[in-house]
Simulated assay, not measured.
Amino acid sequence: MFSIDPAPTFPLTAKVPVPGKDERAQLRLVVRHKGRKELNKWVAEAKGRPDVDFLDEIIVSWSDVTFQVDGAPQAVDYSRENLEKLLDAFPTASMAIYDAYMSELLEARAKN
């Protein structure tokens, strides 16, 4: 059965390039769904905004993300501040998240 009301959130995996590694890291997120009008507005308003502000509007949570604390990896919850740290550490992460999000919304798993 097809529901005309999409789920308000959905899981998303962004593949982020990591310097010195051949394989991209998988960043597992839960993101907010945007319909066509809302998506067009979000994209149009992106110009001139910091990536952290733009992406924070869609990201609800993440999993399996760690930061080094005293030399050991420690899991961290999603927050705007932690997103800003991630985007600073991996400059290509913004585009990887954006591309994965747009692909998921616009292609809607056409491969299935």
Rank of each mutant, 00 (worst) to 15 (best):
Q26L: 09
W42M: 02
M102S: 07
H33Q: 12
G35I: 12
R49S: 12
V60E: 01
I97A: 05
S94D: 11
Q68M: 12
R36T: 14
P19K: 07
Q26K: 15
S61Y: 05
E45A: 15
I59Q: 00
K21R: 11
D22G: 15
L55A: 06
V18K: 03
D53G: 06
L12N: 06
A72C: 05
A110W: 14
K47Y: 15
R28L: 11
A14V: 03
R109D: 15
D56G: 13
D64L: 08
L87T: 03
L86V: 10
L27N: 06
R80L: 06
F2A: 11
V52T: 07
R49D: 10
L27I: 08
H33W: 14
P50M: 03
L105V: 09
V30P: 01
V76Q: 11
P17T: 01
A44F: 03
G48A: 08
S61P: 02
T13V: 15
A75Y: 12
V76T: 10
D99T: 13
A110Y: 08
F2P: 00
D51W: 10
E45M: 09
A93M: 04
Q74D: 10
M95I: 10
L83Q: 03
D22H: 11
I97Y: 02
A46Y: 02
A14M: 07
M1H: 08
R80F: 08
T9Y: 04
I4S: 09
E107W: 06
R28S: 07
L106D: 08
V16Y: 00
A25F: 04
S103E: 14
D64T: 11
K15F: 04
D64W: 05
E104R: 14
V16K: 02
F67W: 07
Y101F: 14
P50V: 04
D99N: 15
Y78S: 12
G48D: 07
F2Q: 06
D88F: 13
R32P: 10
E81A: 14
E84L: 03
E81R: 12
E104S: 12
S94C: 12
V30G: 05
V60Y: 00
M1V: 08
L29A: 08
V69A: 13
